[in-house]
Design a protein around this nucleic acid. Structure first.
Length: 271
DNA sequence: CCATATACCTGGCAGC
DNA sequence: TGCTGCCAGGTATATG
């Protein structure tokens, strides 16, 4: 569910509201993808300083240590008044002096992991290999083109791998490649510098527009205030197999790469 | 090291 | 209605 835009929209929807809160207690539900990595009770009394984002991870800095939150495929956070009982799929309830932060995650591919610091081995295992942030100045078109040159895999899978650039998931990979006019099956190493530059700006454009639209709400995504996003209404190819391209009217095709669906326009996107 | 497959888990939906 | 099979926004880990 959540790619960079959804994670960022989630962050923006509760970061300022939770900043400065004191943790009262933590209740866990069923196991998530990884164990918390500390005694839940040990967090009581600590303060929430700020919420940052790295790729698709939310990093919640505490007065001592940090929590790394990942929404997996079906996770969403809510932040609001305490009091409502945890539902079947609520597996992390952080009660604070300023409200309840709750992770709702039916499939439980998400996780909340504690680390003493970002340099911690636990943190490095999750964050250490991540590529550059696409919406930051460190995302450089020249470096990106050079990075693509070194990868022989299909460009769609290189984007999903997140080692060159983070945050691009299954929806936005298809969308960015459409905007750049590049077939998802094209080997990354065969993408010319000008086309890499197009892809570079397409990634920035599609991700920043999606953030502005509140993310994509295909099934169950909503931000921490319960509001939906609307980016999916303007998707050009994702989940549009068999429908006409919005630019040229050719029919959008679906194929499978690495066990994931890919959508593209066979006319607008060149090998 | 590289590219690809597997594993984790639940729910919604189409088709019979 | 109920069953079956397929599909779903991710990614560490295993495998060749």
């Amino acid at each position: 569910m959540p790619e960079l835009p959804e994670v960022e929209v989630t962050r923006l929807s509760f970061a300022s509201a939770i900043a400065g809160a004191n943790i009262i207690n933590l209740q866990l539900g069923k196991p998530l993808r990884w164990p918390l990595g500390c005694d839940p009770g040990s967090l009581s009394g600590r303060q929430v300083l700020q919420v940052r984002r790295r790729g698709k991870y939310l990093l919640m800095d505490l007065s001592q240590g940090m929590l790394m939150i990942h929404l997996g495929m079906s996770g969403s956070l809510s932040f609001g008044p305490a009091g409502s009982a945890a539902g079947t799929h609520d597996h992390f309830d952080l009660l604070t002096s300023q409200g309840l932060l709750r992770l709702h995650d039916p499939r439980r591919f998400g996780a909340v992991v504690y680390a003493d610091s970002e340099q911690d081995a636990v943190a490095q295992k999750l964050l250490g290999h991540l590529g550059v942030e696409p919406l930051s100045n460190s995302f450089d078109a020249g470096l990106f083109a050079a990075g693509l040159k070194k990868k022989n895999a299909p460009v769609k899978q290189v984007l999903l791998a997140g080692e060159l650039v983070v945050g691009v998931g299954n929806i936005y990979a298809s969308e960015a490649l459409f905007l750049a006019g590049i077939r998802p099956t094209t080997r990354a190493s065969r993408i010319s510098k000008p086309r890499a530059a197009r892809l570079h700006s397409a990634i920035r454009d599609v991700l920043s527009r999606a953030v502005a639209q509140g993310g994509s709400s295909l099934r169950d995504f909503s931000n921490a205030q319960g509001q939906n996003g609307y980016f999916q209404l303007q998707a050009h190819v994702y989940d549009r197999a068999g429908q006409p391209c919005r630019d040229c009217t050719a029919l959008i095709k679906r194929l499978v790469q690495g066990q994931r669906s890919t959508f593209f326009c066979p006319s607008c996107q060149k090998p």
